[in-house]
Design a protein around this nucleic acid. Sequence first.
DNA 1: GACCCTAGCTAAACCGGTTTATCTCCGGCT
DNA 2: AGCCGGAGATAAACCGGTTTAGCTAGGGTC
Lengths: 331, 331
Amino acid sequence: MKRPTIKDIAAAAGVSKGAVSLALNGRSGVSDATRARVLEVASGLGYRPSVTARALSSASADAVGLVLVRPPRALGDEAFFFQLIAGMQSSMSSALLLQVVSSRSDEIELYRRWWAEHRVDGVFLVDLLVSDPRVELMSSLGLPAVVVGGAGHHGSLASVWADDYAAMTSVVEYLKSLGHRRIARVAGLSSLLHTVRRDQAFLASVVDGVIVAGDYTAEAGAVATRSLLSSADAPSAIVYDNDVMAVAGAEVAASLGVAVPSELSIVAWDDSVLCQHGRLTALSRDTFAFGARAARALLAVVEGASPTDVEDVLPELVVRGSTGGAPSARG
Amino acid sequence: MKRPTIKDIAAAAGVSKGAVSLALNGRSGVSDATRARVLEVASGLGYRPSVTARALSSASADAVGLVLVRPPRALGDEAFFFQLIAGMQSSMSSALLLQVVSSRSDEIELYRRWWAEHRVDGVFLVDLLVSDPRVELMSSLGLPAVVVGGAGHHGSLASVWADDYAAMTSVVEYLKSLGHRRIARVAGLSSLLHTVRRDQAFLASVVDGVIVAGDYTAEAGAVATRSLLSSADAPSAIVYDNDVMAVAGAEVAASLGVAVPSELSIVAWDDSVLCQHGRLTALSRDTFAFGARAARALLAVVEGASPTDVEDVLPELVVRGSTGGAPSARG
DNA sequence: GACCCTAGCTAAACCGGTTTATCTCCGGCT
DNA sequence: AGCCGGAGATAAACCGGTTTAGCTAGGGTC
């Protein structure tokens, strides 16, 4: 069993390969009559162009790429990425070439390869680093790319981003309005750009703050929480950088006999089923829509549009049962 | 900026394209001296073969495919698939071509296309239907494939599967040993093969059972639970087909004032952070390892090994706080 | 009627590999 | 000396498209 090629169409329609190519791609150079005949023959034979062959002659590859740098085991728990991918897919007709690698250098190498082989039409850049070599790489390669979730304005690349600074400020202001003074932040990986942004915003608006490093795992959330709550000047509120750490923190608090929210307020960054069920106040954003927006931005760039910065709507604070007035403010 | 091609290597080494190809692929036909020189030149120039071009001449595409049929929005909540994908990636050096489509016919069309274009070396088949046309399709196309999570023994295809029948039986036996007689099952999509298998096992081992259809969403879990608990002969135990429905069910029970586990026992199929946090008794399997196993099976088939059936370890029942003795058995 | 243009098409090169047919040279055997 | 065989290499075809150069026929212009 073999699928028809452009040669078969040509033979069946009694024209040359070149004419078939022109006809199928809607380009001038063939008469309307010929075009019609070719199209008819093509659909009659169930013809589908081979993206592989097409990519070889430097046209579209009909796929976009996404490389994730991460220990694979850890990936499965991060609903964020799957939501994002699902959203991307919803706005793309092409396929997504996904690969998980373990080091940043492998990632760079992979992007180079994909580019050299016309394997993808463009790529998404996620987990932007503070000074990310990929931005420069994309520009020099001329590979269409969109930065997802950076801080906006990355060289000449398109980007889709959310204002983490403003979001963090709003969270802190909310906690301050409840009377909290000593507030802790359990941060994400410090190499990531958005972590730094959130750190900055946190320190700028907080009265008496402390930042503990974390890595998005439940373990990190538990360890950080335990150390914070057992210190002499324990905070009355903790802001976690993701849902998994927040839930782990809530459990540690419970096990230490620290009541939530009367003695400790908890806020999670990124809402999820986990937060909903744990009744945690969370900073919610529509990751699916975010992914869809990123996909549209990438497709636009691939099609030659000039790169734009799209700012996502500000995440919304969903107040549930895990936040309340500061202990001292209640007397 | 342009990457070196095989032609550049040939020119630099002073040999023909063909010789370079033979040398690089370790095939006979060139002398050791020539081979060494070619390899040296190639690595000196940082040469990487183009998978695109290679795929065109009917060799490896260096990618495997996975098509998910699903409304994209729903996808993000299914941690199962992301875990699976993460596991697959951990055992593969090649990329994964992922596409989400909305209909079964689109899925079939996509597999045909990918095959026709040598775009993938093989594919994973998930969500196997009761009588699935894809099995026949893969055989007729000669496209290497591995059935993931079916019932084992699918035509001539390799498969990686878990014994859902035995697993369901063990769950029911466990509940029976606690004194439960009237047991309900909130099932998954009835078109899926494993749903049917679980239905059969459930009905075969239960004393007084009832099955309600669901679709893995929290809404379905809530609706089913509400209707079960408000009926005249409410069950004393419910087995849900996934974690999301189980958690939703637990919340409905709480809102109706039905105590868990004293008045109602709950078991979830597939463990997750959600179950851990909700203290739900769950049937746990290592989805990540499952994915890794599937990837290895696919690679083996791609490399020409004869298809094998790999049975995964039996899911293990993790007993937490949501199951206990039946009300009547306690007096 | 000679000339030029253009529409419409074909032939051929090209993309970057693999594979096959062919050609040359050298050594061993009788 | 003559013949055969095989190693080592090259040229060329091929995969399935795109793209460019070139050819032909018909119409308009002077």
